[in-house]
Nucleic acid binder design. Sequence first.
DNA 1: TGTAGTCG
DNA 2: GCAGGAGG
DNA 3: CCTCCTGCAGCGACTACA
Length: 559
Amino acid sequence: MSKLKDELVERFKELTELAVLDEGDPQSFRVRAYENATYAISGLTGDIAQMSEKELVKVPGIGPSTAKKIREYVETGRISKLEALRKKYPPEFVALTRIPGLGPKKVLLLRDALGIRNLDDLKAALEKQEIRHVKGMGEKTEENIRQALLRLGTTHKERRSPIAEVLPVARRLVAALQGHEKVREVLYCGSLRRFRETIGDVDIVAASEAPREVMAEFVGLPEVKAVLAHGDTKSSVLVGGDLQVDLRVVPPRSFGAAVLYFTGSKAHNVKLRARAQQRGWTLNEYALTRIETGRVIAARSEEAIYRKLGMPWIPPPMREDTGEIEAAESTAGLPEVVRVEDLKGDLSLQGDGLSREALEALVTAAKARGLSYAALLTSEGSDGVATLRRAAASLPLVRWIGAEVEVGDGGEIPAEAGRGADFVVARITHRPLEPDRQTQRLVRAIADPRVRIVSHLCARRIGESEALAFDVPSVLDALEEHRVALAVSGELSALDAPPEIVRAAMERRIRVVLASEAATPDALERLEYASLCAQRGWCLRDRVLNTESVRSVSRWLSP
DNA sequence: TGTAGTCG
DNA sequence: GCAGGAGG
DNA sequence: CCTCCTGCAGCGACTACA
C-alpha cells in the first residue's frame, strides 16, 4: 500500500519492542499503547503525510504523543524517541529477546550480571557455565538457553509456516486425539481454524473429563519431537519440522467457550468481551458468566455464546475484526457467505493424463460429495480437448470440457486457444513485471472474449513467491466489465485469488468460482479450503457461480 | 511452598 | 501512552 | 475548551529458583 505507512508501522513495531525492554514488562500500558498505535497506523487510509497533528489525534488509538511522532517522522525522517531507545538497546542486544524463554527481565539480568550484550557474549557465557551462578538462574535455565539456541534459526519466535505444511499435521494430531476414548471433542483453533495462509503455532482444544490421560497420550504421540511443557491441562510440543503445537484440555461443558477463545483473533475476542461487559457479563475460556451472581449464561457451544451476545455464529475465517461483529449485530445481519455445502459443481477438474478409470473415479467421488455437474480442464490444446471429450464420454456429471491456457507476458492468449473447448480459463503464471505492465497484462487477458474464468490471479505460492504486483481496482474493473469470473483456488500453497482481492471483488458485480483443481478424488477436499479462503474475503454465496444450476452456469460459460 | 518470569 | 469522565 | 485523574482484561499454566 502506502510506503510511508509501511515505514511508520515498521518504526512503531520497533518502538514497541524496545519499550518492552525499557519498561521491563511486555504488559506495561505504554507498550500496549504502542501496540494499539501500530495497529491504528496500519489501518489509516489516505495520505498520512498530509495529516495534521489534530487530525491524527482524532484517530482512535493515536494520541498526542503518537501524533507528534508521526509528524516528526514525516518532516525529518526520524523519531527521536526511537533513536534514543536504539542507543540504549542496540539491535544485537534486542535480538536476544527473540530466544524462546528469554524475556526482557532475564535478558536485562544477563546484561547487568555478566555484561552479555549480544549472541556471541551469550554463547561464551554458556561455554564458561557462568549463567548458572547468576542470582535467579540455575543449571536448568542455562541448559534451556542452550537448547533454545540449538533450535534457533528454525524456530525463532516470528517464524510462521505456510498453511499447506501445517494443516495436514494438525489434522493427523486431531485425528489421533479423537481416537482416544477419554476425548469427547477436539478441534484445532487459532489462526489455522481462521484459515490464515501462514500459521505461527497450532492450538488444539480438547474436551475431556480426564485431562491428565489425554495429555499423556498427546505428548507421547509418535510425531512429537520434543516436549516444551507438559501439565495437566496444557502442554506444548514440537512436531515435524519444528512446528509448535499447544494442546488445551477443558471440561466438556466449557468446550464452546474454549474453542471461541483460542480461535481468536485477539481483536475479535476483545470486541466480544466488550459486548459481554456491556451486559454485566464476562467472557473467558471457560464460560460466558453473569458477573454479580457468577451464573453461567453459556459455555458449551460457540453458537450459544454468540446468540446470548445478540449475534449469529460467525464463521472463523471472518473473525478478524474487520467489521464482522458490527455486521453480526446489525439488523441486516452477517452477509451470507458461501459454504462448501452450497456448492453444486466444480468447474476446475484437471483431466490431463487421466485414464478413463481415473476420470471415472474422480467424477464418482465428486458425485459422492453431492456435486451434480463438473467441467474437465485440459492445458493440451485442441488435441487435449478432443482426447478428454472422448475419454469422458457418457461419464456422469461432466458437462463441459474447458481449455486452460497460460497468459503470455503481454497478456496475449494464443490464437488457437480454446478451439473445440466449451470455454477458456486463463491461468496467470508468474512473470515479474512492473506493476503497470502487469496490470496491462492481466486486463488484456481478461478482455479476451474467449476467457470466462481467470485463475491464480496473483500467481503466488504461499511461502515461496510473492503475489504479483498490479493495480487491483483496474483489474477488478476489467473482470466486471467483461463479465469474467474470478477463481479462488483451494490448493493450499496458492489460495489464489487471495481474500483481500475477493473482498474487493464483492464491492463490484464480479462472479467467483471456487476451484478444487483436483485430478484425484482426495483433492476434492480443496473445495472446502477454497470456501474457507473465500469466507475470509466475505465472499457472498450468491456471487459464486458454482452454487448455481447447470443452466445458469452454461449461460455464463457461453454467453 | 511461595514467587517471579514467560508464554499464550 | 490512550481514552473518557469530572471539574473548572 | 482545558487540565487532571483513573483505568486499561485478566488470568491461568507451566517452569525454575529460593
